[in-house]
């Protein structure tokens, strides 16, 4: 997601937290080599920190002994590894074909108006990051989106208003620590 390359020596690895290390160690028992754990480690760090900073990237690279360029190559390949900070709640809004036929563009506009953000942006209060996502596999209940781990179906402007209210009052889903 980021165009920033870690070339500067001024960026230092941060220490991984004990729970991050525990989870990475657990993943290492499931795969025959460390390299396969790279993506898992990125996801683990993201779960705890909300996103993957350069400092986290360097820490994983060192911990798993994977060149940071390889790890960055993997991180930037996947849509859901965030290399920039995100809001407390990430909205993954399905913009694929069945949802489009069922009018997701008008729902998108409603979100644009309510939160004053479009794809790739985070609301001013830091509550929501709005991202498009390919077909969420719930096309018979289009339009759909996820907020954090939760799926919301048959979206209407009224439902969006309620979702925004509910999640604004809830502990964040983007970060568990």
């Amino acid at each position: 997601m980021s165009s920033k390359v870690i070339a500067s020596t001024s960026i230092k690895a941060r220490p991984l937290s004990p729970s991050e290390i525990d989870e990475i160690e657990h993943e290492m028992t499931l795969y025959p080599d460390k390299r396969a754990v790279g993506l898992e480690a990125l996801k683990i760090v993201q779960k705890h920190q909300g996103w993957v900073s350069d400092e986290s990237m360097l820490a994983i690279s060192r911990y798993l002994d994977i060149p940071v360029s390889d790890l960055e190559g993997v991180a930037t390949f996947f849509n859901l590894v965030f290399r920039k900070p995100v809001g407390r709640n990430v909205m993954l809004f399905c913009d694929s074909v069945s949802c489009w036929i069922m009018g997701c563009e008008s729902i998108r506009k409603h979100i644009n108006d309510k939160l004053e953000i479009d794809y790739g942006e985070t609301s001013a209060d830091g509550e929501f990051t709005f991202l498009p996502v390919p077909c969420l596999g719930d096309c018979d209940r289009a339009p759909v989106m996820m907020v954090g781990p939760d799926l919301h179906r048959n979206l209407t402007p009224e439902k969006i208003d309620k979702i925004i209210l509910d999640y604004s009052n809830k502990p964040g889903t983007g970060k568990t620590e």
């Binding site: 993506l39 993997v74 390949f77 849509n79 859901l80």
Partner: peptide, 27 residues
Amino acid sequence: IVLHTSAGRYICGEETALLNALEGKRA
């Protein structure tokens, strides 16, 4: 059985790209 969760990329469904993804490489 190990349950591996991916991080969102349609090409991972192509079976050989999927294998690269499981090995921790670009898919």
